[in-house]
Design a protein around this nucleic acid. Structure first.
Lengths: 213, 213
DNA sequence: GAATTAATTGAACGTTCGTTTTATTATTGC
DNA sequence: GCAATAATAAAACGAACGTTCAATTAATTC
């Protein structure tokens, strides 16, 4: 046989992407074979190479689109004319929502960086740094405005990102906590961590979180 | 040639361990080949199999000893008759010191879990859970005693561990910050995050960290 | 100093890997 | 309905993989 009835390039490519994210998240990039991926999609190995010239290019595509999606989501979620606490709150909400929604893709983007060639690694890291820079700016502006009490802006930003992204390690949808509860608690922890003093939505969030304590 | 002059089983095994930790941390377990490891040690491939029956057993040994070391370090560092803030402070100090000191081994233990067989994975996770349980107990006791203000003990413990362990992702010895400075800032962030109210050593640490702000 | 044990080499095993090539069939445009 | 093109199958490539085995030499024991 050759071309199969009802075959469609776009559908196949989308199926390859989705299967690849799941397999790489579960077994790791090196451990996933192109044969395994093809079998998961329900296609022969050679068909994969019609859409992605190499295995690494497939990985890179998944990562790049994940980072682009993160940047796009933040652009859409970022409030205009907001005080530091509201900005930080929006950043935390967006970060947690995005990462919980795309647990597997986040896993891939965080764990498989070393499988990229130096040039591609640089490209992904540049996107990541740009995203983290937004948080540092929020923290710096808030500290200068007296809304936050922060020892070291850069270190605090890294600590917050590690803390928030860590959600995907243990969070499983439908278990003890809902996404809203997790987000509320993380918001509360974040605001305390940065020593937020303002009376914005942060206090509401904090009081809401206390309801479950 | 066969046995080489000055060859010593103990030294070779130690060299294999060390080289394996470094190579796996840098390239990943799947990407590291036994030939690459042998070349790094300066030995032929077959010699590795005198010390570790399989590649996975080597990985498991590295992980198990890392987790045992972490438990041992905490047992030695845990204060007797201390208030919650002092206990938490000791936990944070020990965790950060241990993980910075063994960055590569921590990377291996955190990133390569999926390469273990189910039984071995369970064994490592059991050790990890036991260690995390200590932190949850500290947080729970502190919250009950009124020393901390915590929304969700389990969630806070996970957030703290992710935040602290994340140090190894960005920290490089000899750069902008010293280990002492990083530890002080993380202690400060931790105490604020858990809403510590007591006037133990936590205030000293916090004031000290403020000196650099 | 001969016998035994410890440590290692060198070569090979079968398997799996990412990738390529060629042929074949389904779909699309005219 | 016929040409052009898109999508896939089937088979094969050489290279690299984890692992094993037999042979060989250094160190140790008596």
């Amino acid at each position: 046989m050759a071309r199969t009835t009802g075959s469609d390039g776009e559908k196949t490519e989308a199926a390859v992407r989705e299967a690849a994210v799941n397999l790489i998240a579960r077994f790791g990039y090196e451990a996933m074979s192109m044969r395994q991926l093809a079998a998961e999609v329900g296609v022969q190995v050679a068909a994969l190479y019609r859409y992605f010239p190499t295995k690494e290019e497939l990985l890179f595509t998944l990562m790049r689109e994940h980072m682009e999606g993160l940047a796009t989501a933040w652009e859409a979620a970022r409030p205009t004319d907001a005080d530091p606490a509201q900005l930080l709150s929006a950043y935390v909400r967006n970060h947690i929502a995005f990462h919980i929604e795309r647990r597997h893709a986040t896993h891939v983007s965080n764990m498989e960086l070393r499988s990229l060639s130096p040039e591609r690694l640089t490209q992904i890291l540049r996107m990541r740094t740009a995203y983290e820079k937004e948080l540092r700016a929020i923290l710096r502006d808030g500290a200068e405005a007296g809304a936050f009490s922060i020892d070291d802006t850069g270190l605090t930003a890294m600590a917050l990102i590690q803390m928030m992204t860590g959600v995907i390690v243990w969070f499983r949808p439908g278990e003890r906590l809902s996404i809203a509860e997790v987000t509320a608690t993380y918001l509360s922890m974040t605001m305390r961590l940065v020593g937020a003093t303002s009376a914005g939505e942060e206090r509401d969030v904090h009081e809401h979180a206390q309801l479950r304590a």
